[in-house]
Amino acid sequence: MSQPIIERLVKAVGAILLGKEPQIRLAIACLLAKGHLLLEDLPGMGKTTLSHALARVLGLSYQRIQFTSDLLPADIIGTSIFNPGSSHFEFRKGPVFAEVLLADEINRATPKTQGALLEAMEERQVTVEGHSYALPQPFFVIATQNPVTQMGTFPLPESQLDRFLMRISLGYPDPRIERELLKGSNPRDLLESVQAVLTKDELSTLQKKVDAIHVSDALLDYVQRILAYTRQSNQFVFGLSPRAGMALVKSARSFAMVQGRDHVIPEDVQAVLGPVAEHRLSGARDITGHEGERLVDHVIKHVDVIPRR
């Protein structure tokens, strides 16, 4: 059974990032669903720690890029360098050729650079000078970003936000955990001690199992009611797209597996609805782009789990 492995994963990451088990479970679900993850929060909330810890427990090779405003696309995907010895251009792979790419503060880079990364995420390959280079399997991007209201940022365009399966905020730790943090050592120091919990084969087995998680008709009805609601309600400028719907079901499956179930129940959908839908929905009242969360609560509250009549 896959459950012990997943629990070990959760535990291993939880040892580094204290008191954030729900977010850890969501993050793991996102990765098991082969989705890219966007961590969004203020600096110092543990985004980087979480992404590092995830990469390490998954036992994957990882690269980290600190995004800055002068970062060029080539700095991510690599460049063809002229080798005077062979008189040939050689492709020097950029950091994107890793199994886990940690893109720190992705919104600090210019849209052009962001675009290069997002394209690679979508296509799972890189094309330079007419040559395509496949990215490794598995390939995850864990990006972090500061809320867009911060100065000197380039917010990710909405059309590209949905390349990320989930967007997760960590939030402040609760006081008890914070006290632990204050007492103890910097969690980042613990990162070095984290051991891989999974082999690559185990990871791909787990990923395959996600698709076997049962989704009943009743559940699909519920999902469709949610989608219809976002499209009909005036609360939203645009409803959720079919792609968002597929992402929702996939995430719910994965989350159900993380929760140790072989079928999806409405609570799974509700749990992943925020991370999956928030960054894809913009509310009618939402000018700053940050009412998504409130809107998702609204959806959950207004769409009955059990069909009436």
Binding site: L72, A74, D75, G78, T79, I81, F82, S87, F89, G94
Partner: peptide, 15 residues
């Protein structure tokens, strides 16, 4: 300067 910003084509032409 980052190697990524080097104009390799110019290098190939001119050295």
């Amino acid at each position: 300067d980052s190697l990524n910003t080097v104009d390799w084509k110019a290098y190939a032409r001119s050295g």
